[in-house]
Design a protein around this nucleic acid. Structure first.
Lengths: 170, 170
DNA sequence: TGTTGATTGACAGTATACTGACAGTCTAGG
DNA sequence: CCTAGACTGTCAGTATACTGTCAATCAACA
C-alpha cells in the first residue's frame, strides 16, 4: 500500500468496519437476551438497572446512570417502567430534597432471582459459535477496549467515583 | 468451582458479561462516529444506507434493510430523513407498483465522498487503544461471531439472497 | 381464471439513547 | 447571610430499533 489511497466506496468495506460489527453484535445480543428472557418481560437495560439497585440499595438516579453506563435522560423512563411493574420503589432522600433513592421491592428481588438462569443462558448463547479459547480472547479484548475507551462516550461520572458517594451501603 | 453454584447477584458480573460489553462498545462507537462526523450531520445508520445505495443503485427498501441489517420498520424514517436532506430519491418501479427504487442524488454522492475520511478516522479511533495485533484479532473474532450468529437477529433476508434479486445492477 | 398466499411499504406502539434546556435545590465564598 | 455556581431530576426533541398490523399488489396454483 503506497500512500493513503482513497478507499473504494463499497458496502463490503462496511461489513469489516468496527462500527458495523459492534452495532450488529449489539442487535444480536439484544435479540438473544429478549428471546431467553421473554417470560419475564424485562429488557437488558431494565435487568442491568435491577442488578445495580440490588447491589447498591438506596442509589440515586444519577449514580445509577454512571454505574450501568447510560444517559440520565433515558434513565427516567426506565425507572418509571420498573416502578410501574412494582419492581422498585423511590423514596425521597431526607437530607437532600433533590434526590430520590431507589430500592428493590420484594417482587423486584424475586424476579431477579428467577431471571438469572435465563440471562446466563443468553450470555452463553451469544458466544456459543466460538471456541472456548476464542471466547476468552474476545471477552478480554472487549473488556480492555471498553475500559480504555470509557471517556469517549459521555457518562456523567465514572462508576468508581459514583460509588464513593455511597460509602457504607452495598 | 464444585457444581453450577448460583451466581452471586452483583453488578460486577454485569461488567464482564458479553451483553454489557457489546452494548457499551456500541455506545462508544456511535459516540466516536458522531464526534468525527459532526460537520456532516449524518448518523452511522444513515451513512450505511448511503453506502449501500451507492453500491446498489436502484435497490428497494426491503433489500436495503437486509444489506445493512436492520429492520424494515426503522428504515422508513431513515429513508425519509435522507430524502429530506436531498441525498437520495425514490422512483416507483415500472414493473412492480409496490416497489420504490432508491438512488443517490448528486448531493448524496458528494457528501459520501467528503465524509469518508472522517468515517475512517472514527473507525480507527474505536480500536486505537489496542495494539495492532489485538485489533486484528478482535475484528477477526467479531466478524466470525456476527457471521455465525446471523440467524439470531431477525432480518428479513440474508444479504446475499437479497442481492441475487438485483442481478445486473451494481 | 380466480382465489390463496406472499411481498412491499406504511403505520402504531413500545423502548433505548443522546442533546439541550429547565426549575428546584444545595454548597461555598464573600 | 446571600449569591454564584453546581447538582438533581425532568422534559422536549430527534433518531434508532423491534413487534405487530394493514392495504395494495403481485405470483402461483387449482
Amino acid at each position: 500500500m503506497p500512500s493513503k489511497s482513497t478507499a473504494p466506496i463499497t458496502i463490503d468495506a462496511i461489513y469489516a468496519a468496527p462500527g458495523y460489527l459492534f452495532r450488529r453484535m449489539q442487535q444480536i445480543a439484544v435479540s438473544i437476551f429478549m428471546e431467553e428472557c421473554k417470560p419475564f418481560d424485562l429488557t437488558p437495560v431494565q435487568y442491568a438497572a435491577l442488578i445495580a439497585i440490588h447491589t447498591h440499595p438506596g442509589i440515586d438516579a444519577t449514580r445509577l446512570s454512571a454505574v450501568i453506563a447510560f444517559d440520565r435522560s433515558t434513565l427516567g423512563s426506565v425507572i418509571e417502567r420498573l416502578q410501574a411493574k412494582d419492581y422498585i420503589e423511590r423514596k425521597p432522600a431526607p437530607e437532600d430534597k433533590r434526590i430520590k433513592l431507589l430500592y428493590l421491592t420484594k417482587s423486584g428481588a424475586a424476579i431477579l432471582r428467577e431471571i438469572i438462569p435465563a440471562v446466563e443462558r443468553a450470555q452463553a448463547r451469544m458466544l456459543e459459535p466460538l471456541k472456548p479459547t476464542e471466547r476468552k480472547a474476545l471477552m478480554g479484548l472487549m473488556a480492555q477496549l471498553v475500559d480504555l475507551n470509557n471517556e469517549a462516550s459521555r457518562v456523567p461520572l465514572r462508576a468508581e467515583d459514583a460509588l464513593e458517594h455511597l460509602g457504607k451501603v452495598g
